[in-house]
């Protein structure tokens, strides 16, 4: 499946991908499923599905609250697998799970990734698993043809090359210090980070996330890289509109996707 991620970046004229993030089960799994279809129609190239965790230490308040809303409805990892099974009957858009190490580890890393393979889940992102700890998960990912997606941060400096060399799927370039959440401006030199990635691994696409809140900043990030990831700004709409969020989310995703594809 790892090639589908690469293809998702290459299929657009400007070779840039737009990647929206939503928390599975917020406001409900039925709505999450519909959001996947609608976001695909609106121009999403890859979709990041959050599996909620009780203590998401890399998230700001918006996604923290989405996690709590989903968990308080009793949504489990198995429910999310079942939802993906339904999605796969209707859509083959590349899907990437974003969750925390313990959700995978405690489920059983091998069982979890075997399940991902069966459901054609294309990749996983574990923000609390850095380069030094990744083999425990990445090895099982490789066995199951699931991309273990690595992150680089503004503090990574000399670590970027080492991370990029072993990167699978795409490199998730964290735009700013701190946790997820919308920001009024991004001051990091994204271009310099992307350059280091490309020097070490010219093949791997590099998408920027954290803090992107509107079409203008998505376009500006995509210009400096291979794509933009937007989470909190979308999750805010899920929080505000609840069961009626499909319309506002697709409209917003279309705006963002158009901006990225013409960046």
């Amino acid at each position: 499946m790892t090639n589908r991620i690469k293809e998702a970046f290459l299929k657009n004229a400007n070779k840039k991908a737009f990647i929206p993030f939503i928390t599975s089960g917020d406001p409900s799994l039925e709505v999450t499923e519909q959001l996947v279809y609608e976001m695909e129609k609106a121009g999403a190239d890859i979709i990041e599905l959050g599996i909620p965790f009780s203590d998401p230490t890399a998230e700001g308040p918006v996604i923290q609250e989405a996690n709590i809303r989903a968990l308080s409805k009793g949504i489990t990892t198995d429910d999310i697998f079942e939802m993906v099974e339904r999605i796969r009957k209707n859509s083959q858009i590349p899907l990437v799970f974003m969750t925390y190490a313990n959700v995978v580890y405690h489920y059983g890393t091998e069982v979890f990734l075997k399940k991902c393979r069966e459901l054609s889940v294309d990749g996983i992102i574990l923000p609390d698993v850095p380069y030094e700890e990744k083999e425990e998960f990445a090895e099982v990912c490789r066995e199951n043809d699931v991309a273990f997606i690595s992150l680089i941060a503004p503090t990574s400096h000399d670590r970027i090359k080492m991370i990029a060399r072993e990167a699978a799927g795409f490199v998730y370039c964290v735009s700013s210090l701190g946790v997820t959440g919308t920001r009024s401006e991004i001051t990091t030199d994204i271009g310099a980070m992307v350059k280091l990635v490309k020097e070490a691994n010219s093949e791997v696409p590099c998408a920027v996330g954290f803090g992107i809140s509107n079409a203008a900043s998505a376009a500006s990030m995509a210009e400096k890289s291979d794509g933009a990831i937007v989470g909190s700004a979308i999750v805010k709409l899920c929080a505000a509109h609840g069961e009626n969020c499909i319309g506002p989310v697709s409209e917003f995703v279309k705006e963002l996707a158009d901006a990225v594809h013409s960046a």
């Binding site: 890399a58 923000p127 380069y131 030094e132 990574s156 991370i163």
Partner: peptide, 8 residues
Amino acid sequence: YIPETLMN
């Protein structure tokens, strides 16, 4: 097991 941001 921490975010990349904290590794350095």
